[in-house]
Design a protein around this nucleic acid. Structure first.
Length: 661
RNA sequence: GCCAGCGUAGCUUCAAUUGGCAGAGCACCGCAUUCGUAAUGCGGGGGUUGUGGGUUCGACUCCCACCGCUGGCUCCA
């Protein structure tokens, strides 16, 4: 006899062999009809899979409203898409077809080059398959039988995967619906019918078989599906929204930055307004550095190759660096790909005592990396960028406090720009890989120290990812979620026991025992690169920067040329008070001037006409709330000053309230 | 670097029947207008259709190569 416990705590006994579907049906036919998939003791299973014949299980029947069911349905939808492709073209080789956070994809090898024009064709074939109400059937076979089966079907990629990736599996599972059979762990919904109509193929792209650039390139179709057409529409709307926020589009519209192919791809030209934003951020960071007791240094943009041979960067990353500059006398110089070796030399410029530590050296350091041509994009992926970099040299005992300080500083800075949704990802080494330098004992110590601090600080959504460490040490990355739910990796704090070691630079300080000791290094960059950070900020605010960051905070608009003199006087007063202000004194109608200022996302417009001149006031128009009426110039400045000092973010939230502060 | 798609004026706003005289809007410049909360009117300049080659009587249109951009893959100190 089987006893089934339901989420509400109620229990039910079954004497004969039953499936989750049977159980649902025994409660009510309506529940059975709504059921998509089931969860038994926390594990997803197919609705028609038999439950154990005796014992006890906790059973959840998952319906369309459950997120797990949506993921299962998308997986089924990926199979249906693959089936449609196989019906439409000959010689299709199936690779993998998993779900993603927002949809699914399937990789194929086929002669026909898939393009957007094919999408409606594939979608209409999918519609037919869905309407046919084909049940998903689960099969389990010994691996060697499976190999024979896929050989018979001429699915070479599947055969290869069975022979290599699944070599240790005695039994492998399949799903079949209609004529389509796929090697698949599952799980799946009970019938194609449940996919419904709310699905869409989104894009096609190249993808390597098993993610290996040395292997053949496959064609990947991306798609998504929802149980509800409204949710699909909302998802597509959000994709459109993301497109409108593209920093490359907004950056051009608002004159923030430019990339010119004659200068070189991936090399950002900061236009005056973009440079203003960067300058404001830099000033803010400088203030934070003083507060946290850092010292500022400057280092050159190039260094001898030998410097990077000692650090290990040159041999390790030679593929992604600009080639060395060869001089006549045989010397070779590298455009610096990292600031740390230079900062290390500053540390070494004098004998250090334990009393000097921690030494915290900060620099807006520009570095150059030769990213692959297909990789560069806008400001977020570039070949030359400036890090808000610093290196801390401290004793082993100071590591925990210093690391904690770096995390806190990063948290403060993200809060200041209104990015309060983030998670921290701990990047540890992959113990099976040989790409790391330094011995295992040091690594274990570093990883443990890092994890301890993060756990003590109760960082949100802390995750540990193996294989994500830098080659010289473990790290904590800040992954920020922007206004429309996209994740971006920004700041990073990295622990380094290797560069200071005798194997590398052999750093020392004289301890209280009057003997030399090895310091520990921390690499940290709260915002990462200024290029990338500003690019992401543009998208986060959709170009509508808060007052403290806006390149042009205030624009004076005259009603007519009669008020120009007064307008210029107001402008001058605001500028003298430290505001970034401009004036529009053209013989245009007020409406036109307002429209332009609105489109340029200027936070405040000060309308001045004859009435204002007589009263010594300005009529304030807020970019978000519109006309605020006449205000005395002095009161107006106090209001703006308060908003700047509070670093208030009052961008109108587009969705979900994640941007409201 | 790889796969695919796309390149028409400053503009990720776009037009140009099967190959048949490259055209609008916005922006820009000039003149008029002096206006109170999202576009005042009139006029003007601006193009070797990404670059080079080919097919053709004739190429924005068809073919080839290269460059650039976009979406992904791979990489990311």
């Amino acid at each position: 006899m089987l006893t089934v416990t339901f989420p509400d705590g109620s229990r039910k006994d079954f004497s004969s062999s039953v499936s989750s579907y049977d159980v649902a049906h025994s409660i009510s036919p309506a529940l059975a009809k709504a059921a998509m998939v089931a969860e038994v003791d926390g594990e997803l299973i197919d609705l028609h899979a038999p439950l154990p014949e005796r014992g006890e299980v906790v059973l959840r029947i998952l319906a369309k409203k459950d997120p797990e069911a949506l993921d299962v349905m998308r997986h089924s939808c990926a199979h249906v898409m693959a089936q449609a492709v196989m019906r439409l073209w000959d010689g299709v080789q199936l690779a993998f077809g998993p779900t993603t956070a927002n949809g699914f994809y399937y990789d194929f090898d086929l002669d026909h080059s898939l393009s957007e024009e094919d999408f409606p064709l594939i979608e209409s074939e999918m519609t037919k398959i869905i309407a046919a109400d084909e049940p998903f059937e689960w099969l389990l076979k010994p691996r060697d039988e499976a190999i024979e089966l896929f050989r018979g079907l001429d699915q070479q990629l599947k055969v290869e995967h069975l022979e290599t990736g699944l070599a240790d599996e005695p039994m492998v599972s399949f799903y079949r619906h209609g004529e389509f059979l796929d090697l698949c762990r599952g799980k799946h919904i009970s019938s194609t019918r449940h996919i419904g109509k709310a699905f869409k193929i989104l894009s096609v792209a190249g993808a390597y078989w098993k993610g290996d650039a040395k292997r053949q390139q496959l064609q990947r179709l991306y798609g998504t599906a929802f149980f509800d057409a409204k949710e699909l529409a909302e998802h597509l709307r959000q994709l459109e929204e993301a497109k409108k926020r593209d920093h490359r589009v907004i950056g051009k519209q608002l004159g923030l930055f430019a990339v010119n192919p004659t200068v070189g791809s991936g090399l950002v030209l900061w236009l005056p307004k973009g440079a203003a934003i960067r300058g404001i951020l830099e000033d803010y960071i400088k203030g934070e550095l003083r507060r946290w007791n850092y010292e500022t240094v400057y280092t050159p943009h190039i260094g001898r190759v030998e410097l990077y041979e000692i650090s290990g960067h040159y041999p390790y990353y030679s593929d992604s660096q600009f080639a060395p500059i060869d001089m006549d006398d045989g010397e070779r110089y590298l455009l610096k790909p990292m600031n740390c070796p230079h900062h290390i030399m500053i540390y070494q410029s004098k004998l250090r005592s334990y009393r000097d530590l921690p030494v915290r050296l900060a620099e807006f350091g520009s570095v150059y990396r030769y990213e692959q041509s297909g990789e560069v994009s806008g400001m977020t992926r570039v070949r030359g960028f400036t890090q808000d970099d610093a290196h801390i040299f401290c004793t082993e005992d100071q590591v925990t406090d210093e690391f904690r300080g770096c995390i806190e500083m990063t948290q403060n800075m993200l809060a200041a720009v209104g990015m309060d949704q983030y998670r921290v990802r701990l990047g540890f080494r992959d113990r099976d890989s040989d790409k790391y330098v330094g011995n295992a004992e040091i690594w274990d110590r570093a990883e443990a120290a890092l994890q301890k601090v993060c756990e003590e600080m109760h960082l949100p959504d802390l995750t540990i990812e193996l294989g994500e460490a830098a080659f010289y040490g473990p790290k904590a990355d800040f992954v920020v979620t922007d206004c429309i739910g996209r994740e971006w990796q920004l700041g990073t704090v990295q622990l380094d026991y290797n560069l200071p070691s005798a194997m590398r630079f052999g750093l020392e300080y004289i301890g209280a025992d009057n003997r030399p000791h090895e310091p520990v290094m921390i690499h940290r960059a709260p915002l990462g690169s200024l290029e990338r950070f500003v690019g992401i900020l543009i998208e986060h605010f959709a170009g509508a920067f808060p007052l403290w960051l806006a390149p042009e905070q205030i624009r004076v608009l005259t009603v007519s040329e009669k008020s120009e003199e007064y307008g210029r006087q107001v402008e001058k007063e605001l500028r003298a008070a430290g505001f970034r202000v401009a004036g529009d004194y053209r013989s245009q109608k007020l409406g036109a001037k307002i429209r332009e200022a609105q489109l340029e996302l200027i936070p405040y417009m000060l309308v001045v006409g004859e009435k204002d001149r007589e009263a010594g006031s300005v009529t304030v128009r807020d970019r978000i709330d519109g006309d605020l009426g006449p205000i005395k110039v002095a009161d107006c400045m106090a209001k703006f000053r308060e908003e700047v000092e509070a670093k208030r973010v009052r961008t109108a939230a587009k969705r979900g309230g994640s941007c409201s502060h």
